[in-house]
Amino acid sequence: MEIDVKHLEALAKVQLSADEEQVMEKDLRSILEHVKRLFELDVNDVPPTFGSGDIFGVDLDEDIPREGLKRDLILVGAPSIHDVFFKVPRESGASRDEEGKDRS
């Protein structure tokens, strides 16, 4: 079983230290080993269940505007703002591989 922890970190945007990566790989490996029992069952003809509900067909709401949240209320909890905008650092032009090298 190939578990590429670095690839998963990049997909999930979760940075781990080298030590954490090792533990993570070990943990994932043992969980997936346990989960392997699912391969015992032949389920190709069984339809999947994606939800638990008894709902047939999602309810559709009428197209009538309603009051949302006051801007001050949402900006006050933001990690960083500029004027009336949420502020985030820019994208870097560097590729992911280069970024990886910077990691401690």
Partner: peptide, 19 residues
């Protein structure tokens, strides 16, 4: 993701901010 609410780690660019 540190954009609209909650904790944000300081970082020089978007990708490392997320991670």
């Amino acid at each position: 993701d540190g954009v609209r609410y909650g904790f944000r780690a300081s970082a020089p660019n978007l990708e490392s901010m997320y991670q």
